[in-house]
């Protein structure tokens, strides 16, 4: 639970301070945010399943963001940046969708 509280505090601070992101990192932001969303939905589902774990949540969040950014970076270097971005977005999108479906089943029993 402490991870969720920390995340909320960090987000509030970030929204309040609005730090500028270095321009070199700008291209990886959209994918990183999608990956973070995926981790968030995964965590929420785990919470509803009753097996939420702070450590697993944080590690999956961090690794999701880093790996997504890394894939886009590699793709950019190899000249297939847009295609790889699309692939990552598709996979993460499907995961978010199925997690959202599981959460819906939990909440509404439907």
């Amino acid at each position: 639970m402490i991870a969720v509280i920390g995340l909320i505090i960090g987000a509030a601070v970030g929204l309040f301070l609005e730090p500028t992101v270095p321009t070199a990192l700008q291209p990886y932001l959209p994918i990183a945010v999608v990956a973070a969303l995926d981790a968030l939905f995964g965590g929420l589902r785990a919470l509803l399943d009753g097996n939420f774990d702070d450590r697993v949540f944080l590690v999956s969040f961090l690794s999701n963001v880093v790996v997504a950014a890394l894939i886009v970076f590699l793709g950019d270097q190899l000249g297939v940046g847009t295609q790889l971005s699309t692939a990552v977005v598709v996979v993460l999108g499907i995961r978010i969708f199925s997690n959202a479906a599981a959460i819906r089943r939990h909440l509404f029993k439907a």
Partner: peptide, 24 residues
């Protein structure tokens, strides 16, 4: 110690994500 480490990492991740969203 574990809880503190979790909190620090979580705050950092939240900060990064929020600033990424804000800049996007």
């Amino acid at each position: 110690r574990r809880a503190t480490a979790h909190l620090v990492v979580a705050v950092a991740l939240g900060l990064v994500t929020a600033s990424a969203v804000a800049s996007l």
